[in-house]
Simulated scan of single mutants.
Amino acid sequence: MDLTLLKSELTYKYVRSSGSGGQHVNKVSSKAELYFDLHNSAVFNDDEKQKLSEFFNKRLTKENILILACDESRSQFRNKALVTQRFIALIEEGLKEEKIRIPTRIPRGVKKKRLKNKRINADKKANRKPPELE
């Protein structure tokens, strides 16, 4: 995956942040919104696009555009860096290959120990009963 090519496909938009901040918040657009068009991307092949589409199924718009936003910082530059970092982490997580689980056998000693403890417990409870008189 070529990060420089991927970053060149990103589009940013800056809007006013919500929340408190006094008079300054009404003048400055510090919230960074990142837009990424998944299906028109040249970075990924068709299989990777399909995998990412399934990974982002709830986050994509109807036009298959991923939108991420960040307004954690008062700095527009810092918010842009944070949202880009978050986007790259999501892409890497979406492309990660699942490990194939190899089922293992339960060791013989573990089975014997379980049955032994079960037998001890059964004997303990059997000894609690009053003896049967004939």
Rank of each mutant, 00 (worst) to 15 (best):
K124R: 13
K80F: 10
I102S: 07
D123K: 08
K31V: 06
N64L: 02
F36L: 01
E132G: 01
G109S: 09
K49A: 05
T84W: 09
K116W: 14
A69Y: 07
Y14T: 10
P131N: 15
K51I: 05
I102R: 13
E134H: 11
T4E: 14
Q76K: 05
L3P: 01
L10A: 06
L115K: 12
D47Q: 13
E98S: 14
H24P: 00
N40H: 15
N45R: 06
T61P: 01
K111A: 01
L66K: 03
R59A: 10
E63T: 13
L115R: 12
Q50G: 08
R108F: 11
M1R: 04
R16K: 09
R101L: 05
K13A: 01
E72Q: 12
K58Y: 15
K113A: 11
N45Q: 06
Y12P: 00
E132W: 09
N26G: 01
F55I: 03
P107R: 13
I91V: 13
A89D: 09
I100L: 06
G19S: 08
L115H: 10
Y14A: 11
I67V: 15
N121H: 10
N64C: 02
D46M: 07
K13G: 02
S8T: 07
K111W: 09
N127I: 14
K125I: 01
Q85K: 15
V83C: 03
K13C: 00
Y35H: 14
R59S: 06
K31N: 04
L90G: 09
A32G: 03
T4F: 12
K62D: 07
S20P: 02
N26S: 02
F36E: 00
S18T: 06
S20A: 09
R114V: 03
L5C: 03
R105C: 04
K113V: 03
I91H: 11
I67L: 15
F55R: 08
L6C: 01
L95P: 02
S17H: 12
K99A: 08
Q23T: 03
S20Y: 14
A126C: 01
C70N: 02
E72D: 11
Y12H: 08
